[in-house]
C-alpha cells in the first residue's frame, strides 16, 4: 500500500510537449524581464563608455579637423609620432614619477592615521572626521587651498622657510619642484578616502586576535606587524590599486595649479590628452594617448582582479 502507483495516464506525452512550449515561453519572458531591468544601464554604458572607447581607437588612426571629424587615414602614424615625441616622453615620465611620488606616501600616511584613529579613545570620532575630511573637499577647492600654500611670496610654505632663513622655493614655477608640489596636493586630497577605507579594514579585524596576542604579552609594534598588517592585506591591496588608478587619472590639480608647466614637467597623461584634443584640436594624436591610458588602466584593473582574487581573503 505504501508505494501506490496510480499508473501514468496515456495523455502524458501530449501534455509534456506543451510543457516544453510553456517552459520556452517562460524562458523568453524571464530573459526579457532581466534585460528590461538592465537595459537602462546597458544603454548608457554602451553610449557613453563602450562606443566612445571604440570611437577613440578608431580616431587614433586618423587625422581630424577641428570639429573632430576624420579627414585622412594615417594608420599607425599617430602612434609613431606619439612615441617619438619628446613631449610625450616627458609626459609619460612625469606620469610614472607622479605615481611613484603619490601612491606609497598616501598609503603610508593614511595607514598611520588609520592605526591612530583605530584606538578606542574618548573623542576619537572627532579625529576620524577630521582625517576623512579631505574626501569631501573637491579638486578645485583643494587646488585653490594649495595654490595659496605654494604662493611664492605670501604662501605658507615659503613663509615657514623664511622663518628658518631658507631661500624661498618656486614651488609651482620651478620644474624641479612643480611635480612634487602637485604630488603633495594630490596626497593631501586622497588621504581622506584612503584613510576611510583603511579604517574600515582595521575595524573588521576580529578583536580576539589582539586579545590572544595580549595574553601572550605581545607589544604594540609586534601586534601591528604580526596581526594588523597581514589581516589588512586585502584592504591594502585594494587601496593600492585604486590609488594607482586614480593617480593615472589626475587632472584637476594640474589644470588649476600648473596647466602642465613649467616646461611640461607636470603635463600628466590626462592633461596631455586634454590639451592635445581641446586646445590643439589634434583629436587623432589625443586619441592615441587616450588608448595608452586605457591600456595602462586595463592592466592595473586586471592585476587587481587576478591577484586580488587569489591573495585577498574575503571575509
Amino acid at each position: 500500500m505504501s508505494m501506490s502507483n496510480p499508473g501514468i495516464p496515456s495523455s502524458t506525452e501530449i501534455t509534456e510537449i506543451s510543457f516544453e512550449n510553456v517552459k520556452k515561453k517562460q524562458r523568453v519572458k524571464s530573459f526579457t524581464k532581466g534585460m528590461l531591468f538592465l537595459l537602462p544601464s546597458i544603454v548608457l554604458f554602451g553610449a557613453f563608455l563602450f562606443y566612445p572607447l571604440f570611437k577613440t581607437m578608431y580616431l587614433s588612426f586618423f587625422l581630424t579637423n577641428a570639429r573632430g571629424e576624420t579627414t585622412v587615414f594615417v594608420g599607425l602614424q599617430n602612434y609613431i609620432e606619439m612615441f617619438t615625441s619628446p613631449i610625450f616622453h616627458q609626459s609619460m615620465k612625469s606620469t610614472f614619477l607622479f605615481v611613484l611620488y603619490t601612491v606609497p606616501t598616501t598609503i603610508i600616511i593614511a595607514l598611520l592615521l588609520a592605526v591612530l584613529a583605530n584606538e578606542k579613545l574618548k573623542g576619537i570620532g572627532f579625529f576620524r572626521t577630521i582625517f576623512s575630511s579631505t574626501m569631501g573637499i573637491s579638486v578645485a577647492a583643494a587646488s585653490v587651498f594649495w595654490l595659496y600654500m605654494f604662493h611664492p611670496s605670501i604662501g605658507f610654505l615659503n613663509q615657514i622657510l623664511s622663518l628658518f632663513g631658507v631661500e624661498s622655493i618656486g614651488w609651482l614655477t620651478d620644474p624641479k619642484w612643480a611635480l612634487i608640489a602637485v604630488a603633495v596636493t594630490t596626497i593631501w586630497m586622497n588621504l581622506g578616502f584612503t584613510f576611510l577605507v583603511l579604517l574600515g579594514g582595521l575595524q573588521s579585524i576580529d578583536s580576539y586576535l589582539y586579545e590572544s596576542a595580549d595574553i601572550d604579552g605581545a607589544g604594540y609594534f609586534h601586534k601591528l606587524r604580526r596581526i594588523t598588517i597581514p589581516m589588512l592585506s586585502p584592504t591594502l591591496f585594494f587601496v593600492i590599486t585604486v590609488t594607482i588608478i586614480n593617480a593615472f587619472q589626475t587632472f584637476g590639480q594640474i589644470d588649476i595649479l600648473t596647466q602642465g608647466g613649467p616646461q611640461n614637467s607636470t603635463n600628466l597623461i590626462v592633461y596631455s590628452i586634454y590639451r592635445e584634443a581641446f586646445t590643439n584640436y589634434q583629436f587623432g594624436t589625443a586619441s592615441a594617448q587616450a588608448i595608452v591610458l586605457f591600456i595602462i588602466i586595463l592592466i592595473m584593473t586586471i592585476i587587481q582582479f587576478k591577484l586580488g582574487e587569489r591573495k585577498v581573503h574575503y571575509q
Binding site: L38, S41, I42, F45, A47, F48, L49, F50, Y51, P52, L53, K55, T56, L59, G68, I245, F248, Q249, F251, V270, I273, Y274, A277, F278, F283, A286, S287, A290, I291, L293, F294, I297, L298, T301, I302, F305
Partner: peptide, 23 residues
C-alpha cells in the same frame, strides 16, 4: 552581462572623453 559590468571598471572615463564630448 555581469562580466560586462565588471569590464566597465577597466575603461577610464578620461580615455573615452573625446568621443563623449563629440556625442
Amino acid at each position: 552581462l555581469f562580466f560586462l559590468f565588471i569590464a566597465t571598471m577597466m575603461v577610464p572615463f578620461e580615455a573615452s572623453i573625446i568621443p563623449n564630448f563629440h556625442i
